[in-house]
């Protein structure tokens, strides 16, 4: 049976009839078949079926492979991060840190905190405070708070060294104490993370910064305690001062509702002192000299435990006008409840 071939078919037939042309075609076929095997990126990986073991896997794996890599290339380090590039080559793994499953957004947070002044040169203060925060967004909250300072006194350095040995005392404005403060402010928490204590568990945390404005009731220590008579320290009221608060803190979440906060809080206020217990220096001079007719009505004489001794000290403190901007740095440790 004869068949009619097209000119192209005839040409191919004539070409393939040559032994060298046949050999070349076979070599090309073998090469094409061999190429996929060489392109296998994971030496030692199962040929088919099963799961691919995750060894140095990223939390979000790379989307593509950039071709075959030698062992040396796989061991190569990233010039910036210093981590192994792996078989994915120069394409970087995006190592995303997943947020904790509980969200703060829309939650209220009540905190009970203990505050310890850490930079007290002339004064020492320990307080107990309450804060309320509303987390409007995951990383933004606003709220109210306040601290009552149950212990407030001149420092041991002031009482035992300056007063007792050097017969000196700090300027009033540099040694103001806070009775209490109340504030309103906001908080930003742009950084979150987690850490492991050994390998026993994971603690989620957030770093935050906050700022607030408020008001503080202040006083000054007049005389240290006298152990011989059993008299405690005496104080004089120096009025209300506007305060600014700045804090940097660390919130560790132990469950959906409970967290522990550790923060450094700077309470900043201007301490220009003109009166003690409402009395000016002239009022105090009149009070200690017994000239009650020249004492202003605003001067609360009864607030002095000992009009003579405390009045003299208060007069000494006011006769040299002083002003200062105080930074009371405190370490706060708080237990928070979120709901």
């Amino acid at each position: 049976m004869s068949s009619r071939l097209s000119p192209v078919d005839t040409a191919l037939k004539n070409l393939l009839s040559h032994p060298a042309a046949r050999a070349a075609l076979l070599a090309c076929g073998a090469l094409v078949l061999a190429l996929p095997a060489q392109a296998d990126p994971t030496p030692g990986a199962p040929a088919s079926g099963g799961l691919t073991p995750v060894t140095a896997a990223p939390e979000v794996p790379a989307a593509r492979s950039s071709g075959p890599k030698t062992a040396a290339q796989a061991e190569a380090l990233d010039p910036i991060l210093g981590v192994k590039l792996g078989t994915s080559g120069p394409r970087q793994y995006v190592h995303v840190l997943i947020r904790r499953k509980e969200r703060d957004e829309g939650k209220n947070e009540f905190s009970l905190n203990e505050s310890l002044q850490v930079n007290g040169k002339f004064t020492d203060q320990i307080g107990t405070g309450v804060d309320w925060l509303y987390h409007l967004r995951e990383a933004f909250a606003f709220g109210l708070g306040g601290t009552w300072y149950e212990y407030r006194a001149d420092s041991a350095f002031t009482e035992d060294e300056l007063v007792t040995k050097a017969k000196q005392q700090p300027y009033t404005a540099s040694a103001l104490l806070m009775n209490w403060e109340a504030h309103a402010g906001f908080e930003l928490s742009p950084i979150y993370g987690k850490f492991a204590w050994f390998n026993s568990g994971v603690v989620q945390f957030g770093l935050y910064v906050g700022s607030a404005l408020g008001l503080a009731s202040t006083e000054v220590e007049l005389r240290p305690a006298d152990p011989n008579t059993g008299r405690g320290r005496t104080f004089g009221d120096t009025g209300f001062k506007p305060v600014g608060l700045f804090d940097v803190g660390y919130r560790m979440f132990f469950s959906e509702h409970w967290a522990l906060r550790a923060e450094i809080r700077d309470t900043l206020f201007s301490s220009d002192v003109q009166t003690i217990n409402g009395c000016t220096a002239n009022d105090l001079q009149a009070m200690t000299s017994g000239d009650t007719s020249h004492i202003a009505a605003t001067c609360n004489q009864n607030a002095f435990l000992d009009k003579q001794a405390d009045g003299n000290t208060a007069h000494d403190l006011l006769k040299d006008p002083s002003s200062d901007v105080l930074n009371d740095f405190a370490f706060n440790l708080a237990l928070s409840f979120l709901f």
Binding site: L97, I191, Y192, G193
Partner: peptide, 18 residues
């Protein structure tokens, strides 16, 4: 005792020890 990582706003974690 502590190994952790924290994420800046870029979502890239910074590893740390305490």
């Amino acid at each position: 005792p502590i190994y952790g990582k924290m994420s800046l706003s870029s979502e890239l974690p910074v590893h740390f020890n305490f």
